[in-house]
């Protein structure tokens, strides 16, 4: 028969995580952290549109240098993000296997969704695309691995960004990935509240609208950078540190 979550400390955490609701709560909290990061990251990216300082340094390079000058903060944030990604990813895979394989082994001959959004039905696929995109993006513009980005130069954020996105295939891939991210967040932002049990007939509809707006903002904000490079609006001349 059924078991109950009793005991303390680790056992309690383990049995909480064992439950589907616990896993969703973990996904909501880690999703919230990742969403916060995405917002800050976008604000950082948009500095690409700022004019070069009088001393010839681009604000984006200055920003990058500032971040690198604070290793405890930078690495603290990176560790938190890494843990959040791992937890979010593992819980998603576990739940998805339960939902797609075990809970309904025999599929419908006909199944017609009537109210659900495209975003809500494709969370796992969107999530996987984002996951692989992030790995690529880290190799491409953070680590600057030679086999992904041969023109990469450590510390030259603006220059790396522009030269990296001048390849149309790469720029289009970035835009597609960020549209997928926006779709993921369209459902994800309000969904984390529901998973944590925060719902109210008056506020939930507003929350859904806010999450749609934020998804658009993030989608447009992130896509604007590769688009600007691709169209030549943002050019190489800007930054030398």
């Amino acid at each position: 028969m059924s078991t109950m979550a009793v005991g303390g400390g680790l056992t309690r955490s383990a049995s909480f995580y064992d439950s589907v609701i616990g896993k969703k709560a973990v996904m909501a909290i880690t999703g919230f952290i990742l969403f916060g990061f995405v917002l800050v990251h976008m604000a950082g990216n948009l500095q690409v549109f700022l004019p070069v300082h009088a001393n010839g340094v681009h604000p984006l390079d200055e920003y990058g240098a500032k971040l690198r000058a604070m290793p405890p903060l930078l690495w603290g944030a990176r560790i938190v993000l890494l843990v959040a990604v791992i937890l979010h990813f593992v819980a998603a895979i576990q739940l998805s296997l339960l939902n797609k394989r075990q809970a309904r082994p025999q599929r419908y001959v006909k199944l017609a969704p009537i109210v659900s959004t495209y975003a809500s039905r494709t969370m796992i696929w969107g999530g996987l695309v984002i996951f692989f995109y992030v790995i690529y993006h880290l190799l491409h513009l953070t680590i600057g691995a030679r086999f992904v980005n041969p023109t990469f130069e450590e510390g030259h954020v603006y220059q790396n960004l522009v030269s990296g996105l001048q390849n149309p295939v790469v720029a289009i891939f970035y835009m597609i990935a960020n549209i997928v991210l926006a779709i993921h967040l369209y459902h994800g932002i309000w969904s984390m509240f529901q998973s944590l049990g925060i719902a109210h007939p008056r506020y939930t509809p507003i929350l859904k609208r806010v999450s749609a707006v934020l998804a658009w903002v993030i989608g447009i904000g992130f896509c604007s950078v590769p688009l600007a490079v691709l169209t030549g609006f943002v050019k190489m001349t800007g930054g030398n540190l």
Binding site: S19, V20, K24, L95, P113, V115, S120
Partner: peptide
């Protein structure tokens, strides 16, 4: 969970 029902993804169907 023991009955192997799936988890909620807040879809609303």
């Amino acid at each position: 969970q023991q009955e192997v029902f799936g988890s909620c993804t807040n879809i609303g169907e």
